[in-house]
Amino acid sequence: MSEDQLPPPPQADWAYFLDFDGTLVDIAPRPEAIRVSDGLPERLSAFSLAADGALAVVTGRSLADLDRHLALPQVAAAGVHGLELRGGSRPDVPDRAPVKQALTKVRAAAEQLAALHVDLRIEDKGEAIAVHYRAAPDLGPEVARTLAVAVAEAGDLLTLLQGKMVVEVKPAVANKGAAVEAFLEDAPFAGRRPCFIGDDVTDEDGFRVCNARGGISIHVGPPGAVTEARYRLASPAAVHDWLAQLLDRERRTAS
């Protein structure tokens, strides 16, 4: 990635896939403590209309959690890294019973950690489990080691992700790239140039899918990140400004 290469202006005929935490909102010490900026839901709704509905929020949060913050049930979305989909074809997912059984051991390991370290926070998404250690950064290696043992016992059913002050365990079949592929199978996303915007390791699968399809991949954050994204925006505020370019053009054209 060129560290200082800004993306081209957004176009109405692209398909947009936006991460949530760290991309549309600033990361907070706890997932429930994020602040949605004034007017963001309205701007996203307007942007979706400008793109003829080809906008989806693709997040590790559950859809129920996402809706509590954005309240945009009419906008397409993928939750829990694509295990939950609204507005697209669901990816093929094998029998979930073994995965859920394997997650019980991960859940037990996470709860034991939280009992020992009160600064850890468990985010149980039902079909994925995240342990946040932002309040205790030194515990990151211990959290990763402990959960890695439980993941190893599950064979190839689960995978472990290390993000920004969080370690997450999810089904191996679930990733944001697969969610993007599923959306691109159907209208209004099909046939459009895909654009994925994200800030963390879980977004790399989305970048890879967009790159393979000749699309736009945008990493959010300071320069120097190791990423497959081809462009960069500095912050969620910069993402908002970039998206606003399309709305501004639409308003000028209409006036």
Rank of each mutant, 00 (worst) to 15 (best):
V58N: 12
V58L: 13
T59H: 14
T59L: 14
T59E: 12
G60P: 09
G60R: 12
R61E: 11
S62D: 13
S62Q: 15
S62G: 15
A64S: 15
A64T: 15
A64N: 13
D65A: 14
L66T: 10
D67C: 00
R68P: 02
R68K: 14
R68H: 10
A71M: 04
L72C: 01
Q74K: 09
V75E: 01
V75W: 08
V75Y: 06
A76C: 10
A76L: 03
A77K: 11
A78W: 09
G79Q: 08
G79C: 08
G79V: 04
G79K: 03
H81T: 02
H81Y: 15
G82F: 01
G82C: 05
E84T: 04
L85M: 13
L85C: 12
L85S: 08
G88M: 06
G88T: 07
G88I: 04
R90H: 13
P91D: 10
D92Q: 07
D92F: 10
D92H: 12
D92P: 00
V93C: 10
V93Q: 13
V93E: 09
P94A: 14
P94S: 11
P94V: 00
D95M: 03
D95F: 06
D95W: 09
D95H: 07
A97F: 00
P98G: 05
P98M: 02
P98K: 01
P98D: 09
V99T: 13
K100R: 10
Q101G: 01
A102I: 08
L103W: 07
L103V: 07
L103M: 05
T104W: 00
T104R: 11
T104L: 13
K105P: 00
